[in-house]
Amino acid sequence: MSDSFGPPSPFITGLRGRCPRCGLGRLFDGYLSVRETCEACGATLLEHDTGDGPAVFVIFILGAVIVPLALAVEAAFGPPMWLHAVLWSVVTLAGTLALLRRLKGVMVALHYRHRGAGS
């Protein structure tokens, strides 16, 4: 991305898993491992710690979505409890895997934007 248009959005770069400084380099080395530096611009990325923030947001988001869905399925169909356990475990696991990396990327990008490098 060009600097003439300002820095890239932390939400867009985080959701895409890109460097919060340039928007081009990859943010992650593995599924959740943040790279030490950006291969495109050389920004130091590893020092931007997100702690448990992404996991907390995943819990809140999935809880707000899955609990009403489970209640609606129970009210509409009344499936046995073992089916609830299997169904909602799979849905929760899939939702967690889908959201966790993206939310960690957003948290790293927001930390980079608001704390700056070396903070």
Rank of each mutant, 00 (worst) to 15 (best):
Y31T: 12
P7T: 11
F60W: 15
E39G: 08
T96W: 04
G51H: 06
G23E: 04
R26K: 14
L83M: 12
I59P: 00
A43C: 06
G17V: 02
G78P: 01
T44G: 13
A98W: 15
R18M: 10
T37W: 10
A70V: 09
M1G: 14
R115E: 15
P8T: 05
V86C: 10
V86G: 09
F77M: 09
G95A: 08
F11G: 01
D29T: 13
C22L: 01
L110S: 09
I66E: 11
F11N: 02
D3E: 14
R18I: 02
M81H: 08
S2M: 12
F77N: 06
L99P: 05
L99H: 05
G42A: 04
L83W: 12
E36S: 12
T96M: 07
R26A: 13
S33L: 14
A98D: 09
I59W: 08
C22R: 01
M81F: 11
R113D: 10
L97I: 12
C19G: 01
F11R: 05
V58R: 00
L103H: 02
G118L: 09
P68I: 11
P80C: 07
I59V: 15
A75K: 13
K104F: 05
S4T: 11
E47H: 13
V106S: 00
A117R: 12
L32E: 08
G25H: 01
P20S: 07
L93G: 08
G63C: 14
A94F: 11
F77A: 13
V91F: 06
M81L: 15
W88F: 14
P79R: 08
T96D: 04
M81C: 07
V34C: 02
V56C: 12
A109R: 01
D49P: 06
M1T: 11
R16D: 04
H114V: 13
V86P: 01
G17H: 00
P80W: 02
E74G: 07
R18D: 00
P8G: 03
A40H: 09
T96G: 10
C19H: 03
L100I: 13
R21L: 04
L15F: 07
V67A: 14
M107S: 09
L62K: 03
G78Q: 11
E74W: 05
R21P: 04
A109S: 15
V67I: 15
W88Q: 00
I61C: 07
D49L: 07
G14C: 06
F77K: 06
S119F: 13
A76C: 13
L103R: 01
H114W: 09
V56F: 13
L46T: 09
L87F: 11
A72C: 12
R18T: 13
A94D: 07
H84Y: 09
P20D: 02
R21V: 07
G78T: 13
E74P: 01
L27P: 03
L103E: 03
F57N: 05
D3Q: 14
A109G: 03
E74F: 06
V73G: 00
D49Q: 11
V108L: 06
A43D: 03
P10M: 08
R115G: 14
L100E: 04
Y31S: 14
L103K: 05
R101W: 03
M81S: 11
E47A: 14
A40L: 07
A55D: 03
P54L: 02
A98T: 15
L62G: 08
L83C: 05
V56T: 15
A43M: 07
G25N: 00
G25C: 03
E39L: 10
H48Y: 15
A76S: 06
G63Q: 07
